[in-house]
């Protein structure tokens, strides 16, 4: 198939380097419709996005967000009145899988997910119903230790280390995790939670943190918990523990006390 020179032109276009006559030629080719080039550009854009994510995240100055929210509040209602109703058809189906960035160190995990954990709490209303159903299902599976040995025999089982953060630097733990069967959490040196509080475990994949159960620790700071499989078999990239009301919450609200080490 003689699609060349467009493969080479598409690469230069993807990084913004195409110029002159070649740029005009390529853009005409694109305008005529070419599935090969479109797929190529899409794939390059995803790779460049993954490259951007492989750099440690940085929290921008808080004034930026404040200014944006003020701007939106000032103009948002006017905007909705003047625009005609949107009649957009949204593609059904899976998103292009968000690629995992190069592994973060625990510090980066903490920086990145602490921000997310705090913010995601505000989505609680939308998520609450479905999360509570999940939580009920997870609670049924409380059979700590049972099956742990079987899991360890399975080559797909991983052992993930957890490290204490912020309020509990000495805490440590591990999760014996099987991508299909779920797993077990074991923690040590975690201080007993204040009255009315408990620790809540979260699994974090490509989207919002999912509650994975509430657990307590004994007088010596040890605790165990059976973790159910993640709904839909979504891959888990990070395990995290936060301090929450003892009944558990559908989205994290309290401080993160432990997170998995990459």
């Amino acid at each position: 198939m003689s699609h060349e020179p467009f493969d080479t032109l598409a690469a230069a276009w993807a990084v913004g380097a195409l110029d002159g006559e070649e740029r005009a030629v390529f853009e005409r080719h694109l305008a005529d419709g070419c599935d090969v080039c479109e797929a190529e550009l899409r794939s390059s854009a995803e790779a460049l996005a993954a490259a951007a994510r492989s750099v440690p995240p940085m929290i921008p100055p808080s004034q930026v967000k404040e200014a944006l929210l003020r701007r939106i509040t000032a103009t948002g209602s006017a905007r909705r009145e003047t625009l005609p109703p949107r009649r957009l058809v949204w593609a059904v189906g899976s998103l292009v899988a968000v690629l995992a960035g190069a592994g973060f160190t625990a510090t980066f995990v903490a920086t990145r997910y602490e921000a997310r954990l705090g913010q995601v709490a505000r989505e609680a209303a939308a998520l609450r119903a479905s999360v509570q159903r999940d939580e009920a299902a997870l609670r049924e599976q409380i059979a700590v230790y049972q099956g742990a040995v079987d899991l360890l025999r399975d080559p797909a089982t991983q052992i993930v280390l957890l490290r204490g953060l912020g309020p509990s630097p000495r805490a440590n733990g591990r999760v014996i995790w099987h991508p299909v069967a779920g797993g077990h959490l074991f923690v040590a040196n975690l201080p007993a939670p204040p009255p009315g509080k408990a620790y809540e475990l979260w699994t974090i994949g490509d989207a919002a943190p999912q509650p994975a159960g509430v657990f307590q620790v004994d007088g010596s700071g040890r605790g165990t918990y059976r973790i159910g499989p993640v709904a839909g078999g979504q891959p888990v990239k990070v395990f995290a523990v936060t301090l929450e009301p003892e009944g558990g919450v559908p989205a994290p609200t309290g401080p993160m006390v432990m997170a998995s080490v990459k």
Partner: peptide, 21 residues
């Protein structure tokens, strides 16, 4: 797109730390 400001705040918190660097 439907004018949900809360969704915008979450979207900002997810993506601003990625694009800012």
């Amino acid at each position: 797109a439907a004018g949900d400001r809360e969704a915008f705040a979450v979207f900002y918190d997810w993506y601003a730390p990625v694009v800012f660097p």
